[in-house]
Amino acid sequence: MVTRENHQDDAPETLDADEIFWADLQPWLRSTGYELRRRYRPSWVPSWKQRKTSLFWWEFEDSLKAKHPSVMDAKRTVDGSSVMLKKVRVSDHPMEVELTKYLASELKDEKNHSPDLIDVLTVPEDHNMRILVFPLLRRFDDPEFDAVIELIEFLRQIIEGVQFLHHNRIAHRDIGVLNIMMDTSMYPDGFHPAAPSKTPDFREDAKHIPRNVAHPRYFLIDFGLAVRYEYAELQPRAVPVRGQDKTVPEFAAPGGMQNAYDPFPTDIYYLGNFIREHFFEGKDDKKAKLGLEFLRPLVEEMCSTDPSKRPDIDAVSEKFSVLAGGIPHSRMKARLKSKDEGMWESMKLGTTHAYRKLKYKDHE
């Protein structure tokens, strides 16, 4: 067992309870072909404690903690590729492993925007715990969208991904900013999984190429709350459960959390509200975007307080295609501006956008 005594709970040399879970599994994970970072290896001693140094502790790679209690980065020993490990307690999420395996088996369909599944491991002495192994992915909006066409393509892919799920009678039930990712194609030289702005060795800033060059693929992840129905089930019902979006109208109504509901219209709300909050209104550290008003009628329809008045995903896809198809080419190639940009910020971003267009004009 790994213990760290006589330290502050939030000190970098302290492994928290979730990290200790992974550190305890490290020898077994190595035997299965996956190597954790040195922070999680037996007898780890922080680099900044081993010798006198003028560097601060946060300048050392082994100071980086895992970002999510259920997820850990690792490397495959067979080829050195970066992967992500996710622990799943089957009794808590009984459908997640099988749904993830099913979706991974259907990746030949280009409309399937679920991630590949590299491996499924059963934790020794805990047959209720599985470790799912995925390729390394990256947050969908890091780096920021530069041109209008980039955001339109992102939305097209995510709508397509939800459409694939619904056509396969799968309701995600937790669509939102935390469960949308993209591949690593914008970073051909890689990045550090626990510090995405840094190179894999944690020594320099990671460099990326534009989206119009990389053409990243976007993914819907985390099927812990997802449910699947038979095609013959014409009136699907599910027990209400709250995901990351706490604003679902049907759950807020009196008795809403006690009444069975149809999860497919709720998925439409989740998707519409994600677009509304993240791009129309701005949320957390992200500013609202300008020039997207052509999508507002569709988004408002998707977010109707009455689930029966929301379009199904096929109607969403069709309406989105019509609306996006009506945008002039020059507008699609223009910079995606943010609300409340200051003059100097606007000039800087405009110059960077113009430089990228000139440098990568062959990809336009």
Rank of each mutant, 00 (worst) to 15 (best):
V2Y: 08
R4S: 11
R4T: 13
H7N: 14
E13M: 05
D16Q: 10
W22I: 04
D24K: 10
R30P: 02
R39S: 07
Y40G: 08
Y40I: 06
P46Q: 00
R51S: 10
W58C: 15
M72Y: 06
D73P: 08
A74K: 06
K75V: 15
L85H: 04
V88A: 01
V88D: 02
V88P: 07
V90M: 08
S91W: 03
M95Q: 13
E106V: 12
L107S: 08
D109G: 07
D109E: 15
I118M: 07
T122W: 06
V123L: 02
H127G: 00
N128W: 00
I131G: 00
P135F: 10
E144T: 12
D146G: 04
I149M: 11
L151H: 09
Q163A: 09
R169P: 03
L178C: 09
M181D: 00
M186V: 08
Y187P: 03
P188D: 01
F191D: 00
P193M: 02
A214P: 07
P216H: 03
Y218F: 15
I221T: 10
L225N: 07
R228K: 15
R242G: 09
Q244T: 15
K246Y: 12
Y261I: 11
Y261Q: 03
I268C: 02
Y269F: 11
E277D: 13
E277S: 10
H278I: 12
F279K: 08
L290E: 07
G291W: 03
R296L: 15
P297S: 05
M302D: 05
D306T: 10
R310C: 11
D314L: 12
S321D: 13
V322Q: 13
M343N: 13
S346N: 11
H353E: 14
Y355Q: 13
Y360H: 13
K361P: 00
